[in-house]
Simulated assay, not measured.
Amino acid sequence: MLGYVAALKAVDEAVLTAIPSLERPVDLLGLVRSRETARSGRLGAYSYTVHGAGCRFLGDDGTEVDVDFAADGSEIFDLWRLRRYGLSLPEPVDVTDEELRSAVRSLRPPLREVRPDWFGIDR
């Protein structure tokens, strides 16, 4: 779980470094919607694809970090995204929903449940 949080932080830094005009990572969606930036591309060590309410990042090492954005711009993720992250690691980790749910709930704070099985990071 904490690995996902660290990977998400690295993605955030890459986005904000690559596009200094952005205040928050969620602002990338606005650039795509206004057609100022492509729906997919490369930002630092990550390729990205914007989808619906979020973005999927793929690191040079194959690690996948997929995140959605809440209405307030905060980053949120569900069990599916956590599982995808675990399976994309150089040494894949495959766990059940219940194991993921238990691990996330044991990490309050810094994690919080924003709605059933969707989580955010207290910053």
Rank of each mutant, 00 (worst) to 15 (best):
R112G: 10
E113R: 14
T63H: 02
A45G: 07
Y4T: 02
P90D: 08
D66Y: 08
G62D: 04
G59S: 13
E23P: 00
W118C: 11
T96M: 05
A7R: 05
P92Q: 11
W80E: 15
V93E: 13
R115F: 10
D12F: 02
D12E: 14
L87Y: 10
S47Q: 11
G3T: 09
D97L: 10
I19W: 05
A53H: 09
S74T: 15
L107N: 14
A14D: 06
Y48C: 02
T63F: 02
V11M: 03
L29W: 03
G44D: 03
I76C: 10
R115Y: 07
F77K: 10
E91T: 15
V26I: 09
R39S: 07
R81T: 04
R56I: 04
T49L: 09
G120F: 07
M1R: 06
S106Y: 06
L8N: 06
E36D: 12
L111V: 13
V5I: 14
L8S: 06
D68L: 08
P109Y: 11
S40Y: 09
L43C: 05
S74G: 13
V32Y: 07
V26P: 00
T96L: 05
E23Y: 05
I76D: 03
Y85P: 00
A45W: 00
E23K: 15
F69I: 06
I19S: 01
E36N: 13
R115G: 13
D60S: 14
T49D: 01
S47C: 08
R108N: 13
K9F: 05
V11W: 01
T96E: 08
D66V: 13
L16P: 01
L8R: 11
D27K: 05
L107Y: 12
G59N: 06
L31K: 06
D117R: 12
S88G: 09
E113N: 13
I19Q: 03
R84A: 13
D12A: 09
G62H: 08
E98P: 03
R42T: 14
F57C: 00
R112K: 14
Y48R: 03
Y48P: 02
V114D: 08
E98F: 11
S102I: 07
R24L: 02
G3L: 13
R42G: 00
V114S: 12
A70D: 15
P109E: 07
R33Y: 10
S21Y: 00
G120R: 08
R105A: 14
E13N: 09
V15I: 10
V50W: 02
R112I: 11
P25F: 01
C55N: 03
C55Q: 05
L89R: 15
E75A: 15
L87P: 06
R56S: 10
L87F: 09
A10K: 11
